[in-house]
Design a protein around this nucleic acid. Structure first.
Length: 228
DNA sequence: TAGGCCATCTGGTCCT
DNA sequence: AGGACCAGATGGCCTA
């Protein structure tokens, strides 16, 4: 079950700019006498800014200038406050949208460096974060193991054991579902749970907590240490 | 159709 | 005061 994948930020942004919902207070209290229910918020802004649609009661007797002026002043100030409020909300919505887009971009960047199978499978947000956490933890642990092995092995043995960068070997083991895995257990990545993950995630549910349901559970090479 | 995921809006809170 | 961050609400889309 992959979520909608064609929702680019640009598209979302354009949709967001078109989508506007008038909140209850703005609709009923701040804008009590909307001249035209079909007017867009921008129309209403024009209405306020240009004073095209006065909020003053037309039934006010014209001879009571003082009272009328005071009433109009109050109504206009309320309109201005309402307009300012609405402008702030619109700007805040825009910032929030951009903030979430930035967050999603960062999440996409994170996804791009994580191995996924199949390649076009898109991890959900929570899956990406959990997977990245465990992936980093596994890489770190393996590097430490490799360092220890390097220290204990002689130069010749080292060359045979680690012909290339040990971390590269690790990545191969981690990422390739067809790597020399002898274990056929469907959820070998359970062994990659970090201590922290074990505290917060259920190791028994590999598909939910570590990998997307659409992605297969990977096997690791026999040389990969068991982290239980 | 229910449930999951997501984008967006919104009001509150904290910080500068 | 204004911006950043957060969490709740809402509605749309997609899949089983």
């Amino acid at each position: 079950m992959s979520p909608k994948s064609d929702c680019s930020p640009v598209q979302a942004s354009s949709e967001g700019s078109q989508y506007f919902r008038i909140s209850d207070d703005e609709d009923s209290s701040s804008l009590p006498s909307s001249p035209n229910p079909s007017m867009s918020p921008l129309d209403l802004e024009d209405c306020f800014s240009e004073d095209k649609c006065s909020l003053a009661d037309p039934r006010d007797p014209p001879q009571k200038k003082q009272k009328t002026r005071r009433g109009r002043t109050k109504a206009k100030s309320e309109a201005l406050v309402s307009k300012q409020k609405k402008n702030r909300r619109v700007k805040a919505n825009d910032r929030e949208r951009n903030r979430m887009h930035n967050l999603n971009s960062a999440l996409d960047a994170l996804r791009s460096v994580l191995p996924t199978f199949p390649d076009d499978a898109k991890l959900t947000k929570i899956e990406t974060l959990r997977f990245a956490h465990n992936y980093i933890w596994a890489l770190t642990e393996t590097l430490q193991m490799a360092d220890q092995s390097l220290l204990s092995l002689g130069p010749q043995e080292t060359r045979e054991t680690f012909p290339r960068n040990p971390s590269a070997c690790l990545v191969m083991d981690l990422t390739s579902p067809n790597s020399s895995a002898s274990s056929s257990s469907p959820c070998e990545w359970d062994s990659l749970y970090s201590p922290v993950s074990q505290a917060s995630l259920s190791p028994r549910n590999c598909t939910e907590d570590l990998l997307p349901s659409s992605a297969p559970c990977f096997s690791h090479s026999p040389s990969f240490p068991e982290y239980i």
